[in-house]
Simulated assay, not measured.
Amino acid sequence: MAYIGKTYKFQKDENFREFLAHLGVPADKVEYLLTSKPSQKLEKDGDNYTLTTIDASTKEMKFKEGVEFDESITPEITAKTTFTVSGNVVTQVQKFEDGRSITLKREYSDDQLVVEITTTGWDSTARRYYAAV
């Protein structure tokens, strides 16, 4: 788990605009998300993990593997979220009240993080690429 505690900085994405369009994200938020260059870091303390995303603000998500919790996506939207950790792959599944779900599969290596994003009713995959810093 050499990726634990390492910071990864956003580099590029594929199909992310299409993913956001499928979700119905408002245009102003789409542009913000497409131009932001966040960093991510995963830390572990015993059985507890903290996933930190740093951009214009810092968002910390604390979780235990396999334990569902309420994740605040926006002030109006909450998901039931579960993480699993298998080697260098950390998978996050967000389930929403309307029956939709989003899966974010983070695959870590020494020099990069690739996040594959899929969702209910969309027959494609978005990818976001991060470089270790």
Rank of each mutant, 00 (worst) to 15 (best):
D28N: 05
E65H: 06
T50I: 07
F19G: 04
L51Q: 01
Y8I: 00
I77F: 00
E68F: 01
L20F: 00
H22Q: 01
N15S: 11
L23S: 03
N48G: 09
Y49M: 00
P38N: 01
R17Q: 11
T52I: 07
V90F: 08
R17S: 04
V90L: 01
S72V: 15
F63L: 13
E60V: 09
Q11S: 06
E76Y: 12
A21I: 07
T91A: 13
K95Q: 12
V30H: 07
T7Y: 14
K62R: 03
V89C: 12
P26N: 06
E65P: 09
S36N: 13
T52S: 01
I4E: 09
E31K: 00
D47Q: 03
E60N: 05
I73Y: 03
D70I: 09
I73V: 15
D13F: 02
I54H: 12
K6V: 00
V25P: 02
T50H: 00
K12N: 04
G46Y: 06
S57V: 15
K12L: 01
K59G: 11
N88P: 09
D47R: 02
D13P: 12
N88T: 06
L23P: 02
D70Y: 14
G46I: 06
E18P: 02
V85T: 13
K44G: 07
D55L: 10
T58M: 11
A21E: 05
F63W: 01
T82A: 03
L23R: 09
K95D: 14
L51S: 11
V30M: 13
K6I: 03
L34S: 01
P26D: 06
T82D: 00
V67H: 04
P26W: 00
F83K: 01
S86V: 15
T91Y: 02
G24N: 10
G24W: 03
P26R: 08
K37P: 09
K12V: 05
M61K: 12
V89R: 10
D55R: 02
Y32N: 04
K64F: 08
D47K: 09
S57I: 15
F69I: 10
D70E: 15
K37T: 15
F10A: 07
N48D: 14
T7I: 10
P38V: 12
K59F: 14
S39P: 11
T84P: 11
K41C: 03
E60A: 13
F63Y: 03
V85C: 12
G87P: 07
T58E: 15
Y32K: 07
S36R: 11
T35W: 12
Q11R: 11
I4K: 04
G46A: 06
T74S: 04
R17T: 11
T78G: 10
E18H: 08
E76S: 11
T84Q: 12
L33E: 02
F63D: 07
P38L: 08
A27M: 09
V89G: 01
G24T: 02
P38A: 08
T74P: 00
S39N: 05
L42E: 01
L51T: 08
Q92M: 10
D70S: 11
T82I: 08
T78W: 06
E60M: 05
K37H: 09
T84D: 08
A27T: 10
I77E: 02
T81P: 11
E76V: 15
M61P: 05
K44P: 09
K44H: 02
D47G: 00
S86L: 03
K64W: 04
L33Y: 01
Q94Y: 02
Q92C: 06
G87L: 07
S86G: 05
I73S: 08
N88K: 00
T91K: 15
I4M: 02
